[in-house]
Nucleic acid binder design. Structure first.
Lengths: 160, 160
DNA sequence: TACGATATACGAACCGTTCCTATTTACGCG
DNA sequence: CGCGTAAATAGGAACGGTTCGTATATCGTA
């Protein structure tokens, strides 16, 4: 859940500052998109944000919404629910297990964990509904991508 | 990691049985698709499976691969990596938190868990690479979908 | 206020996935 | 072992979410 009520009004006043701090231009469209997202309680889709923002900026384009959401994500101002990979990946193993995923190359590794399999459902979640599965992703960089990055970076680090 | 080596050869012989047990026809295409998936070590995409199976069945269509993978998933014979939702969802909250997601309507709820945030990286994962994030989804049915399902089912249960 | 860099709107393009439909195939039955 | 029928496939067209290309408009600064 995001913030709400009076808090929103206070925060909205400083949303422009968030953009400025990142060296981004403060445009009408960006302000409304971020405002709408902060106000939203339910993790909206790009389309949903688009529809809502259009109430105030009827001429806004869906493309601007997509570009802005992507930008905000890159700057760490917002986040994205779930693992939006480009394509589906399949697994012949249907046993209870979890994944390590390289955020650079997409490599997937399996692992097992009793702690995760037995993770007790927190009371706050129990109120939301019934849980019948735990899906966990550990995200990081695989060996190969790590060493590749090191090789590429060393010259830069050595530079003034 | 799936099974491998001698195990594969044994299992392949009984793959047909897996289909029959589910009341599905045993076709050349299905056999090769499942065989390829069982053999694969790296959670391949539909496209990858397609390319590989085409080495043995040059005329197979990509559509058949997609239909078969979907079918296998529905029957619980294979699984899918990650949360392939239809569209991206965004969140103005960038604090460390996790999600409850209703598998029926897609509703998303946030929750916090120190246990998950502090989850120690298992040694087997440490060997794969460096971990810098834990993403957890508790999957289930939200209150609304639960009660809707109950209402819809009762008449059926009452029927002969 | 004018200028240069950056953003926007719009429509076209993209890409993974699914749908449509004619043809082929698996397999229970004689 | 050949038939008949329901089920599966190939091929291509369609689809939906997302991104790109480009001319125009806007922000922030000098």
């Amino acid at each position: 859940m995001a913030i709400s009520g009076d808090e929103v009004r206070q925060q909205v006043a400083s949303l422009a500052e968030i953009f400025r701090r990142q060296g981004l231009k403060v445009t009408h469209q960006r302000m409304e998109i971020l405002k709408e997202l902060v106000r939203a309680q339910e993790h909206p889709s790009a389309e949903t944000v688009y529809v809502r923002v259009r109430r105030r900026i009827p001429a806004i384009s869906l493309d601007t919404v997509y570009r802005t959401l992507k930008l905000l994500e890159e700057k760490g101002i917002i986040s994205r629910v779930g693992s939006m990979r480009d394509r589906a990946r399949f697994d012949a193993n249907t046993d209870q297990h979890h994944h390590f995923i390289c955020i650079e190359c997409g490599r997937v590794g399996d692992f097992h964990s009793d702690v995760l399999d037995r993770f007790p459902v927190p009371p706050e979640v129990a109120e939301m509904g019934s849980v019948d599965g735990v899906y966990v992703e550990l995200r990081g960089r695989c060996r190969k991508c790590q060493s590749r990055a090191t090789k590429a970076k060393r010259p830069q680090e050595a530079a003034p």
